[in-house]
Design a protein around this nucleic acid. Structure first.
Lengths: 136, 136
DNA sequence: TCTATCTGTAACATCTACTATTACACTACT
DNA sequence: AGTAGTGTAATAGTAGATGTTACAGATAGA
């Protein structure tokens, strides 16, 4: 799994603490230590999925577009990392019973695992993340 | 996550289907399409944890050492990949509330996620994997 | 005791996915 | 017009996963 998921969480938390004004990718970059271009890439994904609004030009940037308690971590996972749990096992030997069937079996199991993970992540909303951050 | 976990599952399934004789790393390599040295590396980990027995020299190889229904996927995950879910977010800005606290918050959440994953994986024993493989 | 066949492991090479960086088009405010 | 932003493509750099080579040590059998 790449870190787009955690970067999305970080960015949205940052935006949640600046609810009244737009934040730039440079500001989020400074907070997260990640290059601004990558911030824009991940946030443009979040924009396409309606989590945030963006504005170009002077005074522009990113701002949260939904209620904090309406966005949960499973939503963010799906957008940024769905399928990341899937194992990489492609070219096993079809002549062998194990090689021929393992991929199908693992796929089933890992799909279930991701679904299971979803139930856990759904319980964390951005509101709760912000609360946890503030409990320094 | 690297593929040591799925490779361990593949290898043990292979051994489970050859319960009466030792299998070589070359045989498992042919079935899985993975280099024999890596097979030996992963299996030597499984040996140290008591899942299999090994024998060097002529006629040697690997053989399952436990009852199929006593080994579950969580056991294997712990040995091969524990902590793999953890996000990589180290150098965020400590001057910023978000940067300063995000790592702690994410650590908590991802530890919980892995624990949750564990409950799911515990339900799959090697016996069930073998049964699934045989349901071609 | 010699040889062939294994595992065990270290060292190195290669490959791939992630991340950073550069560059620039486009938008919007002043 | 000029400045400050996003949007995005293209390229470079890096780290981790994987493959490969090499060889020491164990064991069985001739």
């Amino acid at each position: 799994m790449n870190s787009d998921f955690t970067l999305a969480i970080h960015s949205l938390t940052f935006l949640a603490l600046q609810p009244d004004r737009m934040s730039t990718s440079d500001a989020i970059s400074e907070s997260s230590g990640v290059h601004p271009v990558r911030i824009r890439k991940v946030l443009s994904l979040l924009k396409r999925n309606g989590f945030i609004k963006t504005k170009e030009g002077t005074g522009g940037g990113f701002i949260f577009a939904q209620d904090l308690s309406e966005v949960n971590l499973w939503d963010l996972y799906k957008v940024t990392s769905e399928g990341a749990l899937q194992p990489k096992c492609l070219e096993s030997n079809k002549q062998c019973v194990v090689g021929a069937n393992m991929q199908r079996v693992l796929l089933t199991i890992f799909l279930g695992a991701e679904e299971h993970l979803g139930m856990y992540l759904k319980d964390y909303t951005m509101k709760e993340i912000v609360d946890l951050i503030n409990q320094q």
